[in-house]
């Protein structure tokens, strides 16, 4: 007989925050608590933490440009086998394929431009909507 407490059922959570890093931090903490409950591997937890931080930072800083009248929506669905995270800002979006590769020689010493690349490196799936103001990321718990 299955143990009723052995599996955390899929549950989508939506959080809307102001364009403030402190508010993002609180929302991230709740998401990461759920990741911890689902017993993700250290590597997967590190990846989610990094990609989440980069994604939220991009939404607040580059998307909403810290505009107090704009919000960021964080939607997450964390189960024991995979985490799905969607971040939407109210900015005008960007073209992710136009972001310069930070690992080519001429960009190596530029202090910015690594967030998007790291999200791709650490998550199993990263996709943007057509406008470029929403990113959906998936990490499998392996």
């Amino acid at each position: 007989m299955p143990n009723a407490f052995s599996r955390i059922e899929d549950l989508e959570t939506t959080v809307v925050i102001l364009s403030e890093l402190a508010a993002a931090h609180e929302a991230e903490k709740a998401l990461l608590a759920r990741v911890a409950c689902c017993r993700y591997s250290d590597a997967a937890t590190f990846a989610i933490k990094l990609a989440l931080e980069e994604g939220m930072n991009n939404a607040i800083k580059h998307g909403n440009k810290f505009d107090a009248d704009k919000t960021v929506e964080l939607v997450y669905d964390i189960s024991e086998d995979r985490a799905i995270i969607t971040i939407t800002d109210q900015g005008c979006g960007f073209n992710p394929s136009a972001v310069p590769d930070p690992t080519v020689d001429e960009n190596l010493e530029k202090p910015t431009g690594r967030g998007v690349m790291l999200m791709h490196a650490y998550m199993d799936e990263v996709a943007y909507n057509a406008t470029g103001n929403q990113v959906r990321m998936v990490k499998r718990n392996t």
């Binding site: 590190f46 980069e54 530029k110 202090p111």
Partner: peptide, 16 residues
């Protein structure tokens, strides 16, 4: 235990 890309940028600027 954790660092963001902004922290990497800070290190690059310091290095320069």
């Amino acid at each position: 235990m954790h660092m963001s890309s902004s922290a990497l940028g800070m290190l690059i600027t310091l290095h320069k």
